[in-house]
Amino acid sequence: MCTYLTQTVAVTASGYSNDEWLDVDRAVVSFDHPERTPFEHALRIDLRTDDPARRMAIELDASSARRLADAIISMLDNEEVLALR
């Protein structure tokens, strides 16, 4: 199905690909049909700016996305990391 489910969050970030860094200002998170990942649906993250061509994209199956999210939260909750923030 086409979910049309999308959340956009502001981020301060840089993305790297193909020997180039891109400054990005938002992450668009959706769960819908992927372009390339071999699943019917995927968690899609577009790191982008107002220039549509300046985009870094990732598509993950739901389990991978949850592991990634858990790892991010776990890292951010690490005591050493908390002390640095």
Binding site: C2, Y4, T6, T8, R26, V28, S30, D32, E35, R44, D46, R48, P52, A53, R55, A57
Partner: peptide
């Protein structure tokens, strides 16, 4: 119209952000 002149998949990403 969500990204005139962009590649088809970048335009699709812009449409996703707009909610379809």
């Amino acid at each position: 119209r969500y990204a005139p002149g962009a590649k088809w998949n970048d335009a699709a990403a812009a449409a996703r952000e707009a909610g379809g």
